[in-house]
């Protein structure tokens, strides 16, 4: 039975870029920055492609909200193998409610069986959209879908995947990361899943994939045509660099260390 999965592709600053706070202290310096698909979203695209392949076909629809620049990230997901893309054209600041609102409306239109989102975007690390979305849709949710080991060792690859769909596509079993270990949830479909870092290692966009992506359709919407109020409910008032770490010190012996931990750091 073919399944349909909606995934996301947020445009975020490349984690290798050097991020600087601007002179006004209310944002970052945009000049010279490089952009990538949010790595957690990329993991979501990969997992969706694997689920569809395993389940005998279907469709992976990728969505992103932003200016036309997000086409780059949508094309990346299409090059990885997503079927088609939806672009919500919006300039200006975005908050989690606007994004979740747009995704809710898209999901009501598209009616996918499942939505897979990154657990958070690496730009402002909010970790809220997936949860809002599930609540507003009234869907079940499983956040932080993960695996036991990183880097997909041979041992890990032979184990059961973290996301398993039942043959009738009615339930999804999800292994998720929790404090101090893993938890397995059984969700009734449709549901929202957010991905954690160790879920999988996304494939490369192959050259034939990139060439094919050029002819895959990107459908355009705006918050207004979707009926979403895009006025931000959150304003950034101040942004600052974390304080620089102080240099470490060397202690001559254990006794001094114990003394410093007790009396200076006051941690024991």
């Amino acid at each position: 039975m073919p399944i349909k999965i909606l995934v996301t592709a947020k445009r975020v600053e490349d984690y290798e870029s050097k991020i600087k706070v601007n002179a006004q202290g209310n944002g970052i310096v945009l000049e010279g920055l490089k952009y990538k698909i949010n790595p957690f979203d990329e993991i979501g695209v990969e997992e969706a492609l694997r689920l569809v392949a395993k389940h005998g076909g279907g469709e992976v629809v990728v969505a992103s909200v932003g200016t036309k620049d997000v086409h780059e990230q949508l094309r990346h997901a299409l090059a990885m193998g997503a079927t088609r893309a939806i672009w919500v054209n919006h300039a200006g600041p975005l908050d989690q409610m606007t994004v979740a609102g747009c995704l809710q409306k898209l999901i009501e239109k598209e009616k996918p069986d499942l939505a897979i989102l990154g657990k958070q975007a690496i730009d402002d690390d909010q970790n809220q959209v997936g949860q809002y979305l599930a609540e507003w849709l009234g869907w079940s949710q499983a956040t932080f879908a993960s695996k036991e080991e990183s880097l997909e060792s041979e041992a890990e690859k032979s184990k059961t995947p973290a996301l398993q769909l039942s043959a009738d596509a009615k339930t999804l079993t999800v292994i998720r990361e929790v404090d101090g270990g893993l938890e397995t949830l059984e969700c009734s479909m449709p549901c929202v899943v957010t991905t954690d870092l160790r879920l999988n290692q996304p494939r490369y966009a192959s050259l034939p994939g990139i060439m094919k992506a050029k002819s895959k359709p990107i459908e355009e919407h705006t918050p207004a045509t979707l009926g979403v109020d895009a006025t931000p409910k959150i304003t950034v008032t101040k942004m600052e660099h974390p304080p620089a770490r102080k240099a470490g010190i060397k202690v001559p012996d254990v006794a001094t260390l114990m003394d410093k931990l007790k009396n200076e750091a006051k941690v024991i």
């Binding site: 086409h71 780059e72 094309r75 990346h76 090059a79 490369y204 966009a205 990139i210």
Partner: peptide
Amino acid sequence: TDDLKALQDTARKFA
């Protein structure tokens, strides 16, 4: 172009 950048990205990541 965006297409060339996408091809470059894959080659760069692989390298």
